[in-house]
Design a protein around this nucleic acid. Sequence first.
RNA 1: GGUGAGAUGCCUGAGUGGUUGAAAGGGCCGGUCUCGAAAACCGGUAGCUGCGCAAGCGGCUCGUGGGUUCAAAUCCCACUCUCACCGCCA
Length: 421
Amino acid sequence: MLDIKFIRENAELIRENCKIRLSDVDIDRLLLLDKSKRELEAKIEDLRAQRNKVSKNKPTPEEIVEMKQVGAEIAEAEKSLLPFEEEFTALLFQVPNLTHKSVKVSDDEDDNPVVEQKYKPTKFEFKPLDHVQLAEKLDLIDFERAAKVSGAKFYYLKNELAVLEFALIQYALSVATKHGFTPFTTPDLAKREILACMGFNPRGEATQIYNIENSDLSLIATAEITMGGYHKDELFKAVELPKKYIAVSHCFRTEAGSYSKFSKGTFRVHQFTKIEMFQYTTPENSEKAHDEMLVIEKELFDGLKIPYRVIDHCTADLGAPSIRTFDLEAWMPGKPNKDGSMGDWAEITSTSNCTDYQSRALNIKFVDDSGKKDFVHMLNGTAIANSRAIIAIMENGQQSDGSIQIPEVLQKYTGFSEIRR
RNA sequence: GGUGAGAUGCCUGAGUGGUUGAAAGGGCCGGUCUCGAAAACCGGUAGCUGCGCAAGCGGCUCGUGGGUUCAAAUCCCACUCUCACCGCCA
């Protein structure tokens, strides 16, 4: 969330920012609630001060009667404050983060500038198959039985592909560790409160979040949630930063309202395994950290020899907590292009700088040498999302004889160099 | 899942209704002493927040949320977490 003081003092800027990010939060309403809330709070504080002063020493019977009255007034004022607070908080959490000055302003969520493309789409001497066809021929994924057991958009990986999942984890961990990231596995469930602080809305119609019935827990949509909550209510010394983490978790998404989007095979599923980078930095270093994570993402996919390009999210496509997001889009030969031909670029990783948007809600600060405190910056970046990485590996690695070539960097973890029947 | 004990400031730990936002010790910071250091001694040492240029004045915070009361760290209720033992289990 943003600082209400900042919103108050920069209302015009905030309104403009909401507009370019296609957010319809009612800032005027928010400011009105803020004003009413503060007035009521001031009143309550005055009444409390009055009562505290009298009650500090043993009051006379007359004073007790008087304070009873004051107590009733306090209770009444507190009661009238409640609805303001509730609506205020709900609105405040909806206000999106500020926007990095380099981000393209656009109202079209597909209008994301390509900022780097050094690879060309994979060329085939034959008609390539998509990963679903490949999986079927080579007996690598079972969608049918997954549907029987768990429903649509679930899958079993089997044979070499099940092994590949673990190879990807080890590969991602080894590369990130080399860059100073500390490896983690995390809980796959987290408290709703943490999700909300991280900018995920567990409620609402279009929520991506699975909630656990009769509990305050949700299935996490990404390890960003558990790694961001990790340092809740903590205070760092500036020299302790950055904290660089690489975390393995399962990710769960309802995919409510995503019917029109490309969803073949394992591209858009309810559950997948993801290895996620996360950083806590000082404000002055967050941009550098963001660049670093993008570099690592590129290194990972360079290593896998997957063609990719880098896009810079435009304002329409930016998630609320982020001021800037870069995606790696891998070439997927089996994904139909808009013009009807086969093969297209598709999102495979994503890295965001969320500045102090999450740390403010989670109360995560650092103190510098002069004793000054400030909120840390928090950033996340996909190392590898397995369900999508396997698509790219299968579709780009397929050979004319029907086999699939395994990227060399994975072979020491898989123990095999190709998948062949 | 059951039973019992517990949760207080940076740490240990006292505190069962009224100048207790909190004893004491430790740590840390400053000072005296010393060539310097240690020891000893003296002093200081919570966070968040509202108003204010400031000095300062207020509010909130003793696991969390409610309740009782003029007044709650202290009494009551619920929950969470920690520890021990039992049960179950990978």
